[in-house]
Simulated scan of single mutants.
Amino acid sequence: MVKLALPITDDNVEDTLSKALLEDIDIIELRIDQFKIRDFKHILDVIKKVKEKGFIALATVRSKLEGGADIPDEGRFEIFSQIADYVDMADIEYTSFKINKQVIDFYHSKGKSVIMSYHDFEKTPSDDYIQTIINESKLMGADIVKYAFKARSFEDVARVMCITHKNREKNLVAILMGEIGKVSRVIAPVFGSLITYTFIGQSFAPGQLEAKKLNELLEFFNIQKGWKLD
């Protein structure tokens, strides 16, 4: 079973959310690092629009190292802490060593879940390294572990799917980026991945499938929507 996540910025929010409802999106990932305006009032206004439409609100302030904006860790943590009462989940990077445990502990104190993510836009690392990311993220308290790698071959796709299936009880999100990795957007839920990311209009990551097409493929392969995090 899988949930669909749609990353958004603060551009055309109302229009994007209306389209997201039509495409049966479950989670709106607020890519706050990509917002044109990042003051608290503006961010809160966007969050409220997301919640009013009934979506799960996932807060992400992606680090520059993993494809986000150049915002100091202190500033990122400030944003995370300011909005914790208003969102449902947060996404913090495994490599954000200065603040990742702080974010997890703070959000847990609010009764909120945290995704710990790792992105490699160049390659798919070794099986041992992927297992280390999973194990250490869970030890730090991550509710969900997300890893996204650039697939250079279908062997990369197969390896990541096998590791995901082996660890499927640990609440994982597995993504392979790039043209070769596109297939993972559809098949990863079969191997235990909880979320697949999509786009409406403009994609955020290489290999994402547009929402309408992704829904058609999930339906074709009889992949069911929905789960509840324990």
Rank of each mutant, 00 (worst) to 15 (best):
F191P: 03
S18T: 07
F221G: 08
E14M: 14
V2A: 12
S109W: 02
N215V: 02
V186R: 06
Q202C: 02
D230V: 10
N171P: 00
L65N: 13
H42T: 03
S184E: 03
K138D: 02
I25S: 08
W227L: 10
K48E: 14
S203I: 03
K212E: 05
L21Y: 10
K182R: 13
I180E: 05
M140A: 15
V190W: 04
I133N: 05
L176A: 03
D120H: 10
I144F: 07
Q208T: 01
F154W: 09
D15N: 15
R76T: 03
D11N: 15
Q131P: 04
S96L: 09
A158N: 11
P206D: 05
V87E: 03
I134G: 06
D230G: 12
G181V: 01
K213S: 09
N222V: 06
I180F: 10
E216Y: 12
P189I: 05
A188H: 06
V103I: 14
S137D: 00
E122Y: 11
V61C: 14
I8F: 12
K212V: 05
D128C: 05
I134R: 11
R38P: 00
I187G: 01
A142V: 08
G192E: 00
L4Y: 15
I133G: 00
E52C: 06
D120M: 04
M1K: 13
R168Q: 08
I99Q: 12
P189Y: 08
F77R: 08
A188I: 06
D39V: 04
K53V: 02
G226K: 07
D156C: 11
I99M: 12
A151Y: 04
I175N: 03
L17W: 10
A158C: 06
V145T: 13
K64S: 12
H108N: 13
V87Q: 06
I43F: 06
D91V: 00
V173S: 03
F35G: 05
L65A: 14
F55I: 09
P189D: 03
H165C: 01
D128V: 12
L44C: 07
R31G: 10
F55Y: 09
F35C: 03
I25V: 12
I71A: 10
F77G: 03
P206M: 10
S63R: 04
D156S: 12
L4E: 05
V190E: 06
E122A: 14
T196Q: 08
E29H: 08
H42E: 04
L217Y: 10
I180R: 11
Y94T: 04
D24E: 13
D105G: 00
S203F: 02
S203Q: 11
H108E: 01
P125M: 12
I25W: 08
A57D: 09
D88K: 09
A59N: 14
K170Y: 02
E66T: 01
S109K: 13
V157F: 13
I115S: 08
I8Q: 07
Q208Y: 12
D15M: 15
K170V: 01
G207K: 10
Y147R: 14
S109P: 02
K146M: 05
K19M: 03
V190S: 01
E210D: 02
I195N: 09
G141V: 00
S184T: 13
I99H: 06
V183C: 08
Y129E: 05
I144D: 01
D10R: 15
Y86L: 00
K19H: 07
I187W: 02
E136L: 09
A69V: 05
D15K: 15
S203A: 14
D105N: 13
K110H: 12
E169V: 11
L65C: 08
G181W: 03
V157Y: 12
T60A: 13
M140H: 11
